[in-house]
Design a protein around this nucleic acid. Structure first.
Length: 259
DNA sequence: ATGGCCTGATCTTCAGGA
């Protein structure tokens, strides 16, 4: 089966390209982030016409995650159990579901904004809650993976210029320690191969020609347990989807599984 | 290719993204 994760930066703005990509890529299960819509606005009907069921956790113009699947979609849990609030509310940043033989999460980890910002502390709390919430499934025998926009570059090799990011979020030691904490539960970073250049970046800022210059970051990650990682046949960043008009600022990460 | 960001709402200006 083919499973992927994609921060679409508004599913409404991305819908024509998203539907075309689902068909051309032959993706069976897609974890989506930044739907930027209400649950009512989510295009479940258009996806149903392509044969995909949808599970959505979204509440408006910010955030929002979903899982769409054509191989089953069961036991949906919306939200992050035990997750922190921001601004007095639980933001829609997580959803888990069982799709055929695999249990998956679609996660949109808080950005953090700046290291001194309240949002950064929230980011670390959110990641601690994620670790606690996934630990049991991560240690289990069923193929399990947490896919999404982690808003963290795991190593300095995962940003186009480490000196550019000094003092900024996404590369700090506490954020990388939170990723290490997730790995302690039994999850492994399923690193995709790039289709061009040396680094499998998944995000390039819209500004200043970052994509043509390959000034990117690898922040969209697939963390899978041993039954999942052991079934991986191939994984790659579909940078073709970052090109042209109407592209997201992220590219899909695709994983092929022997399942 | 000779370029220099995009999204949706508070809607002509802004917050947020990272």
């Amino acid at each position: 089966m083919r499973i992927a994760t994609f921060n679409v930066n508004s599913i409404t703005a991305r819908l024509p390209r998203l539907l075309a990509w689902l068909e051309s890529s032959g993706t069976d299960v897609l974890c989506i982030q930044e739907t930027k819509c209400t649950a009512e606005q989510f295009p479940a009907d258009a996806l149903k016409e392509l044969g995909y069921e949808s599970a959505v956790n979204a509440d408006g113009r910010w955030n929002g995650v979903a899982v769409v699947s054509r191989v089953g979609l069961d036991d949906v849990v919306k939200g992050l159990p035990g997750g922190p609030e921001y601004g007095g509310v639980q933001e829609p940043r997580a959803l888990s579901a069982t799709c055929g033989p695999v249990r998956v999460w679609s996660v949109y980890v808080p950005n953090g904004r700046e290291v001194a910002h309240e949002h950064y502390a929230y980011k670390l709390l959110w990641l601690a809650a994620l670790k606690a919430a996934v630990a049991e499934d991560a240690a289990g025998d069923r193929p399990f993976a947490v896919l999404g926009d982690y808003n963290i570059a795991p190593t300095d090799a995962d940003v186009w210029d480490p000196s550019f990011f000094e003092g900024m979020t996404h590369v700090t030691e506490p954020e990388r320690a939170a990723l290490a904490g997730l790995r302690e539960t039994g999850l492994a970073d399923v690193v995709p191969r790039p289709l061009k250049y040396d680094h499998p970046f998944t995000y390039w800022d819209y500004r200043q020609l970052c994509f043509p210059k390959n000034r990117g970051m690898r922040i969209d990650l697939v963390y899978g347990n041993e039954p999942f990682a052991g079934a991986v046949k191939d994984s790659y960043v579909d940078r073709e989807e970052r090109k042209g008009k109407g592209a997201s600022d992220h590219a899909p990460v695709v994983v092929d599984l022997d399942l």
